[in-house]
Simulated assay, not measured.
Amino acid sequence: MTKKVLLVDGMALLFRAFYATAMSNYYMINSKGVPTNAVYGMVKHLFTAVREYEPTHVVACWDMGSKTFRNDLLESYKANRSAPPEEMVPQFDLAKEVTEALNIPNVGMAGYEADDCIGTLSHHYREEAEVLILTGDQDMLQLLEPNVSVVLLKKGYGNYAEYTVERLHEEKGITPKQLIDLKAFMGDSSDNYAGVKGIGEKTALKLLHQYESIEGILENIEHLTKGQRGKIESDLDMLHLSRDIAEIRCNAEVYHSLERAVFDVNEERMAEKFNELEFRNWRKNLL
């Protein structure tokens, strides 16, 4: 049997599910006063993807605290983000309890982001299984390889943009690794790093098509327009720093054997957890 492993970006599913219902103040608060809307929606996203892609193995990856090695590189990394809404806070641990009840391993490592855990595991698993990364984060496209695909969540449930190395090249004309250099130029306002001021996606893509990498561009900097050259030279340190921040690490010290990630839900254990959380109509709406 061909092995197919689904690597789940737990935080991406959880936040997407939370905001989908929180916009209308629908938090699904149970009799214990605990909001469950994010966890319920996360499970719905998960089961919808499982039905669609029929993985043989599933692993969920999580951020472990707010500080990572990227904060050591740049103190202000993600400093512009506000604290999560109070209704969200108790659902972080609940989400992990639920995946555990579904016999899905939870993987995370202090000092690294979920992205790095997913990158590392996809590197481990790609030799023996087809790898699908389920996320809402386009940064994950840098992890694309011949045996690794990225499934981006779109609006609603069951709507996906499926990316392979070929599709990325068709759309942007670049390789997954060149995406890191693209991000280095563009920066990321949501993560609070600047890139090169005045160089956006269009110009960065044009330069990468022509010179392939940051190194190639710098080696040919005299051929650039005066404006491009000036912008790059004045932000050179930030360009290199931004690339370091943008690159998903695939060498985090996390490992989880595929044998322990076989997707095999214990119906009784699942029912007990869903009923404990007071998920209404879960048999009809989730499975």
Rank of each mutant, 00 (worst) to 15 (best):
E215I: 05
S31Y: 10
N106I: 06
D93R: 15
V50M: 11
E87L: 07
S190Q: 01
V43W: 01
Y26I: 09
A20S: 12
Q138D: 00
G187I: 02
L179C: 02
Y27M: 15
R260K: 12
K273Q: 04
I217D: 05
K32V: 12
T120S: 09
E128W: 01
E130T: 13
S82G: 11
G158P: 07
F69V: 13
V107K: 09
S24R: 15
V265D: 08
T68L: 03
P35G: 08
N80M: 07
L13A: 13
I133D: 04
E253R: 12
F18W: 10
G187E: 01
Y211P: 01
F15W: 14
N159Q: 14
D237Y: 07
M1R: 14
S257V: 15
L144K: 13
H209I: 03
S66I: 07
V196P: 00
S122M: 02
E87V: 14
I174F: 06
N285Y: 11
L287H: 08
H209K: 13
Y193H: 04
D115V: 00
H209D: 11
T99L: 03
Y77P: 13
V165I: 02
K177S: 01
Y40H: 14
L286G: 10
Y157Q: 08
A22H: 12
P35M: 08
L239K: 01
V89D: 03
D264Y: 00
K44L: 12
L277W: 11
E171F: 00
E127G: 07
S189I: 00
F47L: 15
T225K: 06
L287P: 13
R16Y: 09
M64N: 15
F69I: 15
F15D: 02
A20M: 05
D191F: 00
I214E: 05
S234L: 04
Y19L: 03
N30M: 13
A22L: 13
E170L: 09
L6A: 03
Y193P: 13
A252H: 01
H256A: 06
L153D: 02
G227T: 13
D9N: 06
K32W: 10
E52R: 15
L46I: 03
R167T: 09
A114V: 12
P146A: 03
E212M: 11
L14H: 11
L182M: 06
S213P: 00
G108Y: 14
L94W: 11
E253A: 02
Y40R: 15
E215P: 01
K206R: 11
F92T: 10
F279L: 04
G227V: 12
K32A: 14
A246C: 01
T21Y: 09
L218R: 13
G156D: 09
G111S: 04
E233S: 13
T175H: 04
G111N: 02
A17Q: 10
T36S: 12
K96P: 04
